[in-house]
């Protein structure tokens, strides 16, 4: 399945806005092997500025390997990565960051016991003074952080507040705002909503849209099509290390996306099996029945699903 509609059809379906643009980041035919395992094979994708590119896939689909290649942790065994049309080789995370590719990791990269402004500037602190009197410019740091978070639509009242007192969604937002401030052109978000509740996920999705509005190329990695569909512009589906499909938003619906991703049939079968298990034994296990019900609901996912 290599009908890369998202790549080929971008010009037509993008309404002319990205018609002649060179992709901000392009991955061409990338492969990565670990011993005899093909973690990734023949994966290509394009990221345009001011767009959200969603990479969807279940566990073990190769999403993490792809991120690690893009963030410089791994080097691809085949294929190439192009930044603004130029082939680049990312020797490490620092090089990737210097090239403007920022990864907001799943484990957030914020320190709960430290204040907002200390977290925001961690690793790249502004200083004043000279020699042994060189010190943190706390006042400026607080002001900048407040401004930057305001751009993301967050009104910080106390920059000295510990990050640990923020909700998961707000922490993600802080990490995103930090990446944007430090010059990221490409933002890679690794499962930013996976550990969050419905409402918090909604907040993060809002920040993803904010980053897109700032003209960043956003790569949104997730296993949840309900989160990807509302904010995504183009969708790439990974399965067992290969690109299964790539579609533009205009070419699909959330139902289509869900079906493509997990395979609607598989889900239905699984739910029937579970129903059979629980139903025949007169529902001895309420939990199992619950799982089955959820599965069947998900298999027949409604278009205006959970994400908002």
């Amino acid at each position: 399945m290599s009908d890369n509609a998202a790549d080929g059809g971008a010009q037509a379906a993008g309404g002319g806005t990205v018609a002649d643009l060179v992709p901000l980041l392009e991955v061409r035919d990338v492969a990565k092997y670990f011993g005899s395992v093909n973690a990734l094979q023949g994966v290509s994708l394009k990221v345009y500025p001011g767009e959200v590119t969603c990479v969807l896939g279940d566990n073990g689909a190769g999403k993490s390997t792809l991120i690690k290649i893009l963030s410089g942790v791994f080097q691809p065994d085949a294929g190439e990565v192009l930044l603004s049309g130029e082939p680049i080789s990312l020797a490490g995370p620092r090089e990737a960051r210097a090239a403007g590719i920022a990864t907001v990791f799943q484990d957030l990269a914020t320190i709960p016991l430290m204040s907002l402004w200390r977290n925001f500037f961690l690793g790249q602190e502004p200083t004043v003074g000279w020699g042994p009197l060189r010190r943190l410019d706390a006042g400026q740091a607080r002001a900048i952080m407040r401004d930057e978070l305001l751009k993301m639509g967050i009104d910080v009242r106390d920059p000295n507040q510990n990050v640990g007192t923020l909700s998961g969604g707000e922490r993600q937002a802080l990490a995103i705002a930090r990446a944007v401030y430090f010059g990221a052109r490409v933002l890679i978000l690794d499962e930013p909503t996976s550990a969050l509740g419905v409402r918090q996920s909604g907040i993060v999705l809002k920040y993803i849209v904010q980053a897109r509005e700032l003209g960043k190329g956003v790569i949104f990695i997730t296993h949840n099509p309900h989160h990807a569909y509302p904010v995504g512009d183009r969708f790439y589906l990974l399965k067992r290390g290969q690109l299964m499909a790539s579609v533009l938003k205009s070419e699909t619906t959330i139902k289509g996306l869900t079906d493509m991703m997990a395979g609607g049939q598989e889900l239905e079968e699984l739910s029937r099996e579970l129903m059979g298990l629980t139903g025949s034994a007169d529902a001895p296990d309420a939990e199992l029945a619950e799982v089955a019900r959820t599965l069947s609901e998900e298999a027949s996912a409604e278009p205006d699903g959970t994400a908002s």
Partner: peptide, 22 residues
Amino acid sequence: RTTFGNWIFAVGGDANAARNTG
């Protein structure tokens, strides 16, 4: 007051996150 102090809190708070932020 110093950058190094910020790093001390960070490596003790979460060494992995600190490494991720450089």
